[in-house]
Design a protein around this nucleic acid. Structure first.
Lengths: 194, 194
DNA sequence: CGCGACGTTGATTTGCCTCAACGATTGTGG
DNA sequence: CCACAATCGTTGAGGCAAATCAACGTCGCG
């Protein structure tokens, strides 16, 4: 059933056959249509979602009504409103499917009881969060220290797949710049490159 | 010995007396002088540091020679170059003491062998990283969506203690603005407040 | 075919930076 | 205990990166 997720866990920690049976009992795949939300603001977010197929984005809307994309997630990534998930307070984020896709939801309570039986899961999620934190720090570092153009060049280098899957104005939003400015920046880049 | 750290762990997970003995055998307190570095760039960072006393900052120097502070850590926080720690590649960060203080270093290999004996430690660090990630996402969100002035107001609201312990130009650096601009922003705030 | 979603281009504005000079405070050696 | 140098914050003039606003081109799709 959830073979892709199991393989993904096994890249980090070892699982026995019994562990896998336990996991398979609990995990289910949910199909999601393009433009459908799996997380919306205002409620406490109690679920982690594993992306089994498709491409998702998390974003929020600020006081001026502007959208800001904070993350893209494709096959093999976990996505949630981590801030709400951690604090237990109502969240501010939307998570939306950019294509028809599939997720494997994992509720907090389920994860907790599961982790009592399979301690390796704690190690796995420790590593998942560690990786997420490392990524987030790197991104903050780039946002603060480099110009929009440099930031964009780094992005397409690192996330070639995503750059091809999502419209340009969403990349602009992720980078924290306007679509108009990104367009102009790309023009300059292609001019200086030739 | 490392009572403060043990208490800090116990806030999240339960530990037996044996666990504590095991921990106490391994943990040592290291005194650090003001302005001393505990992490410097160029080397692979293999240690997490628990702040037992004092105040630390992590920062890096960009291609133009400008310093950027990425984090402050006071009593009870963990600090490291998480990116280097996770990837195993040489790091870019400095971590420096802002006052005379004490840290408890925890090397990666030590943590790994320790976690085999005390599985609860994986759960503890899972939560530490989860919290770190939630903070990092919140910060990114603010950096992207609000003006420097708003960002500053949020900062002093949330980190009252730090605001009093570190010079203003370091707060400016943390916020990603120049000391001059922060000074002007504060002037405007105090004018409009009265 | 016509409409909506997306990208481009140009004119204007603005938030923040840079550079430079000037107080205020602290601490340290003579 | 004073003098002098650091260290830190403030203030002002001028500049630039990126935002805003507005108009237009183009493609894919119902």
């Amino acid at each position: 059933m959830s073979q892709f997720l199991i393989d993904s866990i096994r890249k980090y920690v070892s699982l026995s056959e019994d562990d896998i049976t336990l996991l398979d009992e609990v995990l289910t795949i949910r199909k999601i249509k393009k433009k459908q939300w799996i997380i919306t603001p205002g409620e406490v977010c109690k679920t982690e979602f594993f992306v089994n197929k498709g491409c998702f984005r998390s974003y929020f809307i600020d006081d001026n009504g502007h959208e800001h994309i904070t993350k893209f997630a494709t096959e093999g990534w976990w996505i949630t409103d981590i801030s709400s998930f951690y604090t237990g307070k109502p969240g501010h984020m939307y998570v939306e499917a950019l294509e028809d896709g599939e997720v494997i939801p994992l509720r907090k309570e389920v994860l907790d009881t599961l982790a009592d039986k399979i301690p390796q899961l704690n190690k796995y999620f420790k590593l998942v969060y560690q990786k997420g934190l490392a990524n987030s720090c790197d991104r903050l570092l780039r946002t603060i220290s480099s110009s929009a153009t440099e930031h964009y060049l780094r992005f397409i280098e690192e996330y070639t797949d995503i750059e091809k899957r999502v419209p340009q104005y969403m990349i602009a939003s992720y980078l924290g710049i306007t679509p108009e400015f990104l367009s102009k920046a790309k023009m300059k880049i292609s001019r200086t490159a030739s």
